[in-house]
Amino acid sequence: MLNTSPVLEFKSSTFFAPILILCSHDLVAIEEALQEKIRLAPEFFRDSPLIIDFRELNKLHLDLDFAQIVQLLRRVGFFPVGIRGGNELQNKQARELWIPIDTVRELGGTITIGETAKPETSQPAAPQPAVAAPREPQPAIVPPTTPAPATLITHPIRSGQRIYAIGDLIIMSQVSAGAEIMAEGNIHVYNTLRGRALAGVHGNTDARIFCFDLQAELISIAGDYKTSEDLNKQKYNHPVQIYLQNHALIIKEIA
């Protein structure tokens, strides 16, 4: 019989890869900061593809060798799969390493390289400058400048499961011990939260966590975290919100 099945097929699809925004060219500091992030969410970062964003770095005129950062990332367990915002030399190095350049599209439109700087609310990822500038007093509610669609989940998140949302994450069911939920924005759990919840994972210090019943193993906002040992058990079994104030996690009952 003649075999007429095609040899290959192309499908268009989208898949998820975190973007690493570099703000420092200190390789040691970068590695430390990455290790810290990985320690917080080992499951999430293991063998993760990664896109390296040089826009902040190049805006600050900090020079960084692309080959070196790729080497570092591979060493700590990432798979760099793209570069964006690189300068001529960095792009050339990327091409030599077969890493695609500026192919990343974000939800809501194509990134134009050289676009004007985003408003202040765009939060850089991992390595913060050694001395953080004192934050201006802000109104309690800051409207998000880049609204990403919220992710709504109605089924339970079980032990061993991991959820990542680009914007806000809304969960209508329970989050089991041993589960991990992460969002670049806020996290809402309209049920019991027993697992690990990490909001503002790209450094958004305004992100908050809301839940009906806090029994979490770990909560984190923009990298500042508390484990269940540090959590005040008196807040258990009450609806609470969690937010960041001067790098301290505040847990407050919702009256």
Binding site: H155, R158, S159, Q161, A177, G178
Partner: peptide, 24 residues
């Protein structure tokens, strides 16, 4: 109970129904 919870997570993500986005 913990192991069952873990199993439920796998059930909801690694089954034919999950892969085909059918009713779980």
């Amino acid at each position: 109970v913990r192991d069952s919870d873990r199993m439920l997570g796998i059930l909801s993500s690694k089954s034919r129904r999950a892969e085909r986005s059918e009713e779980p």
